[in-house]
Design a protein around this nucleic acid. Sequence first.
DNA 1: GTAAGTGCAAAACATTTGCACGAAT
DNA 2: ATTCGTGCAAATGTTTTGCACTTAC
Lengths: 143, 143
Amino acid sequence: LAAADQIGEEFMRRGLRLTGQRAAVVRALVGLSGSFSVHELWLASRRNAAGLGIATVYRTLDLLVEMGAVQRVHGRDNCESFVMSQDEHKHVVVCRRCGATCELPDIGCTDFIADASRRTGFRIDDHLIQLAGVCPRCEKEQF
Amino acid sequence: LAAADQIGEEFMRRGLRLTGQRAAVVRALVGLSGSFSVHELWLASRRNAAGLGIATVYRTLDLLVEMGAVQRVHGRDNCESFVMSQDEHKHVVVCRRCGATCELPDIGCTDFIADASRRTGFRIDDHLIQLAGVCPRCEKEQF
DNA sequence: GTAAGTGCAAAACATTTGCACGAAT
DNA sequence: ATTCGTGCAAATGTTTTGCACTTAC
């Protein structure tokens, strides 16, 4: 996919080496649909690079988050999932059943945030908005 | 505080015993302003109950979350903070500097969520909205 | 050639659990 | 009395780190 190449270039741009292991993680990343755990990403990456250590996945994931290619998904309790983020900063809807995700533009929540700022007096400069539910496909497949 | 008593009653109502340790945790809880970690709650609770084990704090915190008296606070990365929640389900604004929190009513985000549902086709039944910024007090205290 | 990256194993944490003892009803 | 709750310590699971070895540049 083109997305993988784009991320690869971003590594270079930042003066980071695009090693075989990092490329393997990135290729696995774009192959995974929806949200995933570190462990899942590790398993998927290993198919592209035998013997890949999980520590490398953690280290690469840190970089990917830092460069905005991946973002953390927060559940009501657990927060150990991630998703690839197509663009800059988007909100995400996660399917509680299959983990599928869908992104949403910022537009629409600005009023809400401005109002919150007005009510509380806080200077609000960051927000975490994540919706959860059931995706159309799972909805159709009955229970 | 009255809040502590109210939570104490909720324990009884659920057929749970209001032990000295649980009361100590609750008293510490209402004393803490803003968000706190498990460890911080443990330290504060110990002042009310010497020798209190951290396992008990974890267990009590689970109950408090279950009964809606406390909710988890999600940061962009770490998710190990909690806040006391006055009412049912509210959104929270957290001060990145001092951890102070302020709650917001659901009203205002319903349009946004309805729109998200329309756009994505998901049946959305849960949402996590947490804003971050700087509180008025910290803002005044310069840098 | 050299700095950056990797795998491995150990360490560091955070959280949960089993169990014998103590406390509340 | 009997059940429920607690402390302790061990177990668990996850993430980080130190270090010798390797690799991309």
